[in-house]
């Protein structure tokens, strides 16, 4: 297992990422889900494998805010990383806060667990779009139900196609390929446009607009 000072540039498994950060695998998986820990995936036929770049992990550690995570479930395995360097670039602060919110959505979609993504949404958030010619509009609860019924979609590897920030509002275009699951079928593609609102310093999704590409 590589030590923290290993010259190796990439970490090739959850085990290695956890060892590098000196935390449990459970904690680093949660950090990916809730705090945007930069983890990448090799796409394979059956199931993806994860990897991470050391320099990205280092940068994430530096930028990570010092605010305590109230949802910590790891008990003794505390979230104390080396003291983060204060962020001075206002744009980066907002950009990273937005991608952190979006990574909660992605983590929930990947795991098929809406509980992981609920905190990313504003309580009054809505959804709209067409799937197979049927229009869906309504409460974000529809998203949560769909995600839970669909189950895990381990191969999705979303890309941020656009992040545009205007002071208190933002739009994020997410391209999601290799959707799978009970409802999604196999290897489907979705284009999602999220609108976000900054509320009490936190970015929340207020609307998810989707286009489900016909296969």
């Amino acid at each position: 297992m590589p030590e923290r000072n290993t010259p190796q540039k990439t970490l090739e498994s959850w085990k290695q990422i956890a060892a590098y950060l000196d935390r449990s695998e459970r904690t680093v998986r949660r950090w990916e889900a809730t705090e945007g820990l930069p983890v990448h995936r090799h796409e394979h036929e059956r199931q993806d494998t994860v990897f991470a770049y050391r320099h990205e992990i280092e940068a994430w550690s530096r930028l990570r805010t010092a605010s305590p995570n109230p949802s910590s479930v790891d008990g003794a395995d505390t979230d104390n990383l080396p003291a983060p360097t204060p962020i001075v670039n206002k744009y980066l602060v907002e950009h990273d806060a937005i991608t952190r919110t979006m990574h909660r959505y992605i983590a929930g979609a990947r795991a098929g667990d809406s509980d992981l993504m609920r905190s990313a949404f504003h309580p009054s958030a809505t959804i709209s779009g067409y799937c197979l010619g049927v229009e869906y509009t309504g409460s974000v609860e529809h998203v949560f139900q769909w995600i839970d019924e669909n189950g895990p979609a381990p191969n999705i590897n979303p890309r941020f196609a656009r992040i545009e920030i205007i002071e208190s509002i933002a739009v994020v275009h997410l391209e999601v390929q290799h959707w799978s699951g009970k409802l999604a079928g196999a290897n489907a593609r979705a284009s999602d446009v999220f609108t976000l609102l900054k509320r009490n310093g936190e970015w929340k999704i207020t609307h998810k607009l989707f286009h489900w590409h016909d296969q």
Binding site: G129, Y130, E164, V171, H173, S191, V193, L209, F210, H211
Partner: peptide, 11 residues
């Protein structure tokens, strides 16, 4: 004006 099939974003 960004158009993605059935959805669009206008600033």
């Amino acid at each position: 004006v960004d158009i993605l099939d059935s959805i669009a974003v206008v600033r």
